[in-house]
């Protein structure tokens, strides 16, 4: 379980990116966080995957307070929280195989085990035939599959998807979401899915928090918020209308 308690992040004492955010993400959840650009989603992600320290508040991962742990512990914690990104962020000079092997190399895993593990992960994301390709030779969907395999190589308990499908077309988005759902159901990986697209959230999330101007304005079961949104911003997310020019 990941618990955020009154998380605030301020830059240069002036810009408040997120303010007083409290969230509880239970094991096995696919937890959606939705918000417009600039709402504070990226800052929130960087706090949850421990790349950035909140200005105030507390983060508790599996009953351990993590804001004051030492560097070694912090690195171990990060390995337990995988992240995939909108821009995939693959190592461009490494093959698909070597990209997935990267976290294992960092952990000092021996070569034979790496071979087996990478083969297993590439099979999971259905890219066995691309092991020797370079990222520049792959499509967006394939790149994201490599990123997913790489993130899973550490066997994390949590997986953060930071706008992971925002650069993909609808069909590819569906296949990636299906893969994420499969990872959640088969391996029990808790997923935190950040998006600005309600249809993405609705496809696979069970819970959702709506972020607006650094605050959480609404939170609950996806079905419930979809049926009966309270906040204006949530209403806007599920409303479709044709634009008109007068």
């Amino acid at each position: 379980m990941i618990e955020l308690i009154n998380i605030t992040k301020t830059y240069n004492n002036t810009i408040t990116a997120i303010k007083d955010i409290s969230l509880k993400i239970n094991d096995g959840d696919i937890f959606g966080i939705i918000g417009l650009s600039g709402a504070g989603k990226s800052t929130l992600v960087r706090c949850i995957n421990l790349l950035e320290k909140p200005t105030s508040g507390e983060i508790i991962v599996d009953e351990q307070k993590i804001l004051n742990i030492n560097n070694k512990e912090l690195l171990r914690m990060r390995k337990n929280i995988g992240t995939i990104f909108q821009n995939f962020n693959l190592l461009e000079q490494r093959t698909v195989f070597k990209n997935v092997a990267f976290p294992l190399e960092l952990n000092g895993v021996d070569k034979n085990t790496i071979k087996e593990e990478v083969a297993r992960l590439l099979k999971l994301v259905d890219l066995e035939d691309k092991a020797n390709s370079y990222p520049s030779e792959l499509s967006g969907g394939q790149k994201q599959r490599v990123a997913i395999a790489r993130a899973l190589a550490n066997s994390p308990k949590y997986l953060i998807c930071d706008e992971a499908t925002s650069a993909l077309d609808p069909k590819t988005t569906d296949s990636i979401l299906k893969l994420l759902l499969e990872i959640n159901k088969k391996f029990g990986v808790t997923i935190i899915l950040i998006s600005h697209d309600m249809s993405v959230i609705y496809s696979i999330c069970n819970k959702v928090a709506v972020l607006d101007e650094a605050h959480i304005v609404e939170e609950g079961d996806v079905e419930q918020i979809f049926k009966n949104p309270q906040s204006d911003i949530a209403k806007r997310f599920i409303e479709f209308k044709r634009l008109e020019v007068k």
Partner: peptide, 8 residues
């Protein structure tokens, strides 16, 4: 950033 998130 990706490498950092992997605990490098």
């Amino acid at each position: 950033e990706a490498a950092r998130s992997l605990g490098a």
